[in-house]
Computed example of a mutant assay.
Amino acid sequence: MTLAIFLLARSGDDLLPLADAWKHQLPGCEFASPDAPTHSDFGQGYQWFSVVGVTEQNRLRRRRRFYCCTEGKMTSFPLAKVRWPPGC
């Protein structure tokens, strides 16, 4: 089985239509679209990390810090927050 996890959206529900569009091209693939763990700095939705204060000068350092802090943690992401497409 293959699992595709959509991670870039205002909320997990926003990307679920992609699962419907791709399910025929990717038979045997399961799709998940979790909400990010923190509320967005910009009001609605969720975020995986804050982009407030990102500049060209600190972008690479912040990205490296995010990857170092999250490495290996996606396997322990609470599946209760994962929104599976209808019919799965």
Rank of each mutant, 00 (worst) to 15 (best):
M1Q: 08
T2H: 00
T2C: 01
F6W: 02
F6T: 04
L7Q: 00
L7T: 00
L8W: 09
L8G: 03
L8Q: 08
A9R: 00
A9T: 03
R10Q: 08
G12N: 05
G12I: 01
D13M: 13
D13W: 13
D13E: 09
L15E: 07
L15V: 08
L16E: 09
L16D: 11
P17S: 01
P17M: 02
P17K: 01
A19V: 13
A19M: 12
D20R: 14
D20E: 06
A21Q: 02
A21P: 02
A21N: 00
A21W: 05
W22C: 12
W22F: 10
K23E: 09
H24C: 06
P27W: 12
P27I: 06
G28S: 01
G28N: 05
C29S: 03
C29P: 15
E30H: 15
S33I: 12
S33M: 07
P34Q: 12
P34K: 07
D35Q: 15
D35E: 10
D35P: 05
P37N: 05
T38G: 10
T38M: 08
S40Q: 08
S40Y: 04
S40M: 09
G43T: 14
G43D: 04
G43A: 10
Q44H: 06
Q44S: 10
Q44E: 11
G45I: 12
G45P: 05
Y46D: 09
Q47A: 06
W48E: 07
W48K: 11
W48R: 11
S50G: 04
S50D: 03
S50W: 09
V52W: 08
V52Q: 10
T55V: 06
T55R: 01
N58V: 04
N58G: 09
R59Q: 10
R59N: 04
L60S: 11
L60G: 00
R61K: 14
R62A: 05
R63T: 13
R63A: 14
R64V: 03
R64I: 02
R64P: 07
R65S: 10
R65C: 07
C68P: 15
C68G: 15
T70S: 13
E71R: 08
E71W: 14
G72K: 01
K73C: 08
M74W: 06
T75E: 15
T75Q: 15
F77C: 03
F77Q: 11
P78A: 02
L79I: 14
A80M: 01
K81Q: 13
K81T: 00
R83K: 04
W84L: 11
P85I: 11
P86F: 13
G87N: 01
G87P: 00
C88K: 05
